[in-house]
Amino acid sequence: MAKVELIVNGQSVEKEVEDRTLLAQFLRDTLQLTGTHVGCDTSSCGACTILVDGKAVKSCTILAVQADGSHIKTIEGMATNGALHPLQEGFKEEHGLQCGFCTPGMIMTAADLLSHNNDPSEQEIREALEGNFCRCTGYHNIVRSIQHAAKKIRSGEAAVSA
């Protein structure tokens, strides 16, 4: 068993888990943060993407204990005081989600992109999403959603933290 201390969505968390526990399982099973989804077992689909110290990471491919001491942000931490993050808003406005399963991972990956490029081209957005599968939308509206968010961020309407 290993002790894991993390800051998850701004809150300190301290738990004992088996050494082999993946961060995705830790979030889902131990912390009941089930917004992070698991869609594959080969680190391919990106549904489990979260931010670890601001960077997009597949939480199914790191151990909870490896992340010890990190700042974690999950989809549950994106809205602030009930106000949606521009990405969440973008996905809603542009119909960037259907079944919703890949959506949290998409949003977290996009958050990483927008944190260092707030004016990405369509091509840059598509390339940034190469590690995330969506089977519902054909990606068309996901691209629009991220463009929507980027525009809002650029206009200064929203301060963004990733």
Binding site: G46, A56, K58, G131, N132
Partner: peptide, 9 residues
């Protein structure tokens, strides 16, 4: 290499 998430780690 891989994808953004893989490159980050």
């Amino acid at each position: 290499i891989g994808d953004v998430q893989v490159r980050n780690v």
